[in-house]
């Protein structure tokens, strides 16, 4: 009885502050594209140029053998960038909103959530780059491509969970940003973006580390429906859901505990 009351209250508040979420996201998009001359084109060009460099270096010099390597890389890196942008921007989102938090009542989870929304929209723009590379490489997707939103949704929920944790902890520990940038770099290399998983299957240790990495499952899922025309099986989906929902719940719990005292530290 009491908990349904709290739930209703939560949704009422959420609905009231939905326009704020929308306005903050709009603000970020406007400012991002107002500052750069190339505007939205940059979101497409940037991954394309990166792809050119990386495929040259890794494809030619290191002789990584993956079919359609440019597509393989750009599909993986697009999703990785989404996750890393979302969490990295969220990390300082609460601290940066200190002037607001001190003067009006706002549900504080709005701030990390907004950064995740913003990253999601940028990600959707960058999918144009993915399509361009697929056209160039004449990769014809099968019907499974209509499921492209499934791994995005999983990854989005996961990113929100991680963002809630990071944005809450960073209020108390201001050096978290430096630590997290190191973690992100290591994490990226532990995700099969520029190499195929088959490359590390020889070493059980490395393979096991990768299998603990949620991003591995989302990235592979994304590739399978976009490039390979395969829908991942039930187990794969269950793993994805477990990581996403698990981190989401953990995030809500940590954030909820921490936010009580935000105002004393920001």
């Amino acid at each position: 009885m009491k908990s349904t009351g709290r739930f209703n209250l939560f949704f009422k508040k959420f609905k009231r502050f939905l326009p704020l979420l929308q306005n903050l996201t709009e603000r970020d998009i406007k400012l991002k594209y107002r500052r750069s001359i190339l505007g939205i084109a940059w979101s497409v060009l940037n991954p394309l140029l990166m792809m050119l460099v990386i495929t040259q270096v890794f494809g030619l010099l290191l002789k990584i053998k993956v079919e359609n390597f440019p597509v393989y890389y750009i599909v993986g890196v697009a999703m990785w960038n989404f996750f890393s942008d979302a969490t990295f921007m969220s990390l300082n989102s609460v601290i940066d909103s200190a002037p607001l938090i001190k003067k009006v009542y706002i549900p504080k989870y709005i701030f990390p959530l907004e950064k995740c929304m913003f990253a999601l929209i940028n990600f959707l723009f960058s999918l144009i780059a993915v399509v361009i590379v697929m056209l160039f490489q004449s990769v014809v997707p099968s019907w499974t491509i209509i499921l492209f939103w499934v791994p995005i949704l999983y990854c989005f929920v996961f990113a929100i969970g991680v963002s809630l944790i990071l944005s809450a902890l960073s209020v108390y520990f201001r050096d978290l940003l430096h630590l997290y940038s190191v973690v992100l770099t290591i994490w990226m290399y532990a995700t099969p973006i520029i190499y195929p998983v088959s490359l590390v299957k020889g070493s059980t240790l490395v393979y096991n580390i990768i299998r603990c990495n949620p991003m591995y499952y989302y990235v592979e899922y994304f590739r399978s429906v976009v490039m390979y025309g395969i829908v991942p099986d039930l187990t794969w989906n269950l793993i994805c859901v477990t990581f996403s929902v698990g981190f989401f719940i953990l995030g809500v719990f940590v954030f909820n505990r921490a936010q009580r005292n935000f105002i004393l530290y920001i």
């Binding site: 502050f17 326009p19 704020l20 929308q22 306005n23 903050l24 603000r27 406007k30 400012l31 002037p99 607001l100 001190k102 003067k103 009006v104 706002i106």
Partner: peptide, 20 residues
Amino acid sequence: AGFDMELTARENIYLNGSVL
């Protein structure tokens, strides 16, 4: 509080309204 100085007044009026 809650104005973003990079934005115009028009945009800020809407932003601040949603803050409230």
